[in-house]
Design a protein around this nucleic acid. Structure first.
Lengths: 150, 150
DNA sequence: AAAGCCCGGTTTCGTTATGCAACCAATTGT
DNA sequence: ACAATTGGTTGCATAACGAAACCGGGCTTT
């Protein structure tokens, strides 16, 4: 009765979710993107139980999304910093954020926003595009499944 | 000891995850994007237990991501189809898929791909852009928290 | 250098969610 | 009319989650 794993799936979405699809991982990554590094910082920011946080940090380190660094302020403790793999989750977080803003808030309700540092403007809504630049919707794409599968 | 809810969070990412952040919801939505509509189709495609699937479908309907339609092939059963809110999850799925392809597969390992119908080409990698069109990385943005919080 | 306070966890234990299988009603095929 | 399929629900065992207690090493204060 273990939670079913998507590790062997041929669908990239399923494999991604297998790694970062739990309730906390993406929130940890989000906080890491914005500079949090220490266990205590994450715990305070997220309000998550310490055992769960420890589990998740270990999971993210094991999967190469975070790595531990010996220090940075001279103290003997370690810090958790994003790897390149972790930083490349940025579009996912932006996509989730934009969807959430659009669909999970009342008008005027206060919310955290991601702003372009250069001009203080919100980020442009993501667009899925073809290699030739056309904007694509779900109707414009199709799924290609691998040849030999079930 | 209930699973902590993000419903009241001011962060849009957290609110999104509160709705679609579990192990199955996005996979159901992905299948729905590619045309699956019936309970049995989802169950067969995902291999999920029927009680869990029923729970998740209800959850997605409650949150306005799917809606039930009376029929389409004349039978007396109902179908689950995406609402506009559900269709707008498309960029999130693309982002997850692209990240998964890049980071969760060995080279040459067979995988499902999303292709532009027009030319059969894979979709272009997503780019986060500023309103003026500049491509942004996480270093180019900052977080603006709502004024009175905490 | 001793006492005490943080930081970063681990342990314990109760509660919740997940997953499998059995069951069941309504619909459909024969 | 009878059997199989569809679309679920119910029960039960197990794994994950969450709160709080605990704990050891680092750091601080004196």
């Amino acid at each position: 009765m273990k939670r079913t794993s998507m590790e062997g799936a041929t669908c990239p979405v399923a494999r991604s979710l297998d790694v970062i699809g739990d309730w906390w991982s993406l929130l940890i990554v989000r906080d890491a993107q914005y500079g949090l590094r220490r266990f205590g910082e994450f715990q305070k920011s997220l309000g998550v139980a310490k055992n769960i946080l420890a589990q998740r940090l270990k999971h993210l380190v094991d999967h190469g999304i975070l790595e531990t660094q010996p220090a940075s302020d001279g103290s003997a403790w370690q810090e958790y910093v994003l790897t390149e793999k972790g930083r490349s989750l940025f579009p996912i977080l932006v996509a989730l954020g934009q969807w959430g803003q659009e669909h999970c808030f009342e008008a005027g309700e206060p919310r955290t926003r991601v702003l372009d540092k250069a001009h203080g403007q919100p980020v442009k809504p993501l667009e899925v595009r073809a290699v030739d630049g056309r904007v694509l919707t779900v109707q414009d794409v199709r799924l290609e499944r691998p040849p030999t599968q079930g």
